[in-house]
Computed example of a mutant assay.
Amino acid sequence: MAKNDVTVQGRSVRDLPKVSLHDHLDGGVRPGTIIELADEFGIAAPASDAAGLRRWFADQCGSGSLVEYLKTFALTTAVMQSEGALTRIAREFVEDLAADGVVYGEMRWAPEQHLTAGLSPEQAVRAVQRGIEEGVDAADAAGRSIRVGQLISGMRHTDHTLEMAKLAVAMRGEGVVGFDIAGPEDGFPASAHRAAFDYLAEQFFPVTVHAGEAAGLDSIRSALLDGRALRLGHGVRLAEDLLIVDRNGDDVQVQLGPVARWVRDREIALELSPSSNLQTGAIEAWGTGLGDHPFDLLYQLGFSVTVNVDNRTMSDTSLTKELSQLAATFDYTLDDLEAFQFNAAAAAFLPVEEREELVEIIAEGFDR
């Protein structure tokens, strides 16, 4: 059995069909690839071998600060400035998803961060799409079926968001399925990018917004009202809008605030990323261990929770690892793990007919 894989009710978690909604391309570059490309581009890497670079990422990303966590992306984006590098990294990214049992994934990335060597945004998107298609073909040849769409991210601390929104809409027929804003959350609300979100709404283009990670309820409120978010990137601090009014052993009575009730009642998916949430301090109000994560409380209250990796390289993780750790921590069964995949399938930025097909693929895979 592969590293970090466990069995739940006799089933290998790695072999279960999975849906990945929150997965950053520049956060999932193979350490060995970073070293090779850094050498090619004349960039000084902080380690000379893949194992050493993994340790460096682990040390840098365990500070408990999203700002410090984000600094590691300077290295990965530095080696992603050519068409060849983007295509290779996207191909390997898809191959890694498929090897992890992912049957549908959304790969988010910010083209504006990959133009320093002269690429146009359109060239960058097409280079990534070539890599996706090569990765899908490689997975198919290996007997694994996978589909992957691009999410174009605007960086919330820059003024290029409207330009990136127009790029996403223009490329919707070339592999782009949705839009996101990313980067430092605190102090950069979705409301600052209202023009981009207005444009996306006019074009009926689906949006997810990073919110409720480094900032709290105001960030989530802005994502919903200004961003018209159909999903919340992380959204873990939505738990700040839950008031425990009575606790009797395992029985907990919770009162939902208006934001939490809106999110739950409209089944707005939460793109929760447990390991990342621990690293960035997103759950520090509740504790520092996985057992302190409000994931289970949100799940038991009926929120549309999904499980994600955020950044495979920075968190040294996979969907298999995230699900395995959750199952061990909260005594989840196969039915629970299947429910998380159904939630993700329902929230995928796909036409309803294709979401229904995805649900069937998941159900068949879990029944196998």
Rank of each mutant, 00 (worst) to 15 (best):
206 P>H: 00
234 H>M: 12
272 L>V: 13
186 D>P: 00
330 F>W: 13
154 G>V: 09
359 V>P: 01
165 A>L: 03
148 V>T: 09
104 Y>D: 00
95 E>R: 11
7 T>Y: 07
89 I>V: 15
37 L>M: 11
292 D>R: 08
15 D>G: 12
302 G>V: 08
6 V>Y: 10
344 A>R: 07
219 S>M: 03
184 P>S: 12
296 D>T: 10
96 D>R: 11
177 V>P: 00
203 Q>E: 15
105 G>A: 15
150 Q>A: 09
315 S>M: 03
111 P>G: 05
200 L>C: 09
145 S>C: 12
136 V>L: 11
118 G>W: 04
310 D>L: 02
258 P>C: 12
64 G>Y: 00
187 G>C: 01
119 L>F: 02
162 L>A: 04
299 Y>D: 14
138 A>C: 10
237 R>V: 03
10 G>M: 11
37 L>E: 03
244 I>R: 12
349 F>Y: 13
342 F>T: 13
158 T>P: 04
189 P>K: 00
307 V>W: 05
190 A>W: 02
355 R>T: 02
200 L>N: 08
308 N>Q: 06
136 V>Q: 02
340 F>T: 03
136 V>F: 01
206 P>N: 11
66 L>C: 11
177 V>K: 14
70 L>G: 05
214 A>T: 01
95 E>Y: 00
56 W>C: 02
160 H>S: 13
145 S>I: 00
324 S>M: 12
195 A>C: 02
33 T>N: 07
210 H>K: 05
253 Q>K: 14
286 W>D: 07
303 F>C: 01
36 E>G: 09
306 T>F: 03
46 P>D: 10
277 N>T: 01
29 V>F: 07
46 P>F: 04
176 V>D: 03
358 L>H: 05
142 A>K: 09
52 G>N: 04
201 A>R: 14
226 D>S: 15
93 F>R: 08
56 W>G: 06
326 L>H: 08
295 F>E: 02
65 S>E: 11
101 G>A: 11
277 N>M: 10
103 V>D: 07
317 T>N: 14
266 R>T: 05
185 E>L: 06
334 L>Y: 06
287 G>S: 12
368 R>P: 00
68 E>F: 01
126 R>M: 12
